[in-house]
Lab assay of single mutants.
Amino acid sequence: TTQFTVHSPEQAEQWKEYAKQKGLEVHVQKKNGTWHVTIH
Score class of each variant (00 low, 15 high):
K31L: 13
K20S: 08
H7D: 15
K16H: 05
Q3F: 11
K30T: 07
K22Y: 12
H40M: 12
V37P: 01
Q11T: 06
T2H: 15
G23E: 03
E13Y: 07
H7I: 08
H40A: 09
T34G: 12
N32I: 02
E13I: 06
V6Y: 03
V26M: 06
V37E: 01
H7L: 10
T38P: 00
K22E: 07
K30M: 13
Q29L: 11
V6P: 02
V37F: 04
K20P: 02
N32C: 12
H40P: 03
W15N: 01
H36V: 15
P9I: 15
A19H: 02
W35M: 03
V37C: 00
V26I: 15
F4D: 02
G33M: 04
S8L: 06
N32A: 05
V26Q: 00
K20H: 09
I39R: 00
K30H: 13
H7N: 14
A19V: 03
W35R: 01
W35V: 03
H36Q: 14
T34C: 14
K20A: 09
F4P: 02
Q21N: 11
E25K: 10
Q21R: 11
K22V: 10
H40K: 11
I39P: 00
E13H: 07
W35I: 06
W15G: 00
Q14S: 10
Q11H: 09
K30N: 12
G23S: 04
W15V: 05
G33W: 03
V26W: 05
A19P: 01
V6M: 02
E13K: 08
W15D: 01
V37Q: 00
Y18M: 05
E17K: 09
H36E: 14
A19S: 03
K30Q: 13
W15Y: 05
E17V: 07
T2N: 09
G33H: 05
Y18S: 03
I39K: 00
E10D: 08
A19W: 06
T5M: 10
K20T: 08
K22P: 02
K20G: 05
Q21F: 08
H40N: 08
K22A: 12
K30P: 06
T2L: 15
K20N: 08
E17G: 03
V6L: 04
Q21D: 09
T34R: 12
T38L: 08
E17P: 00
H40W: 14
Q21H: 08
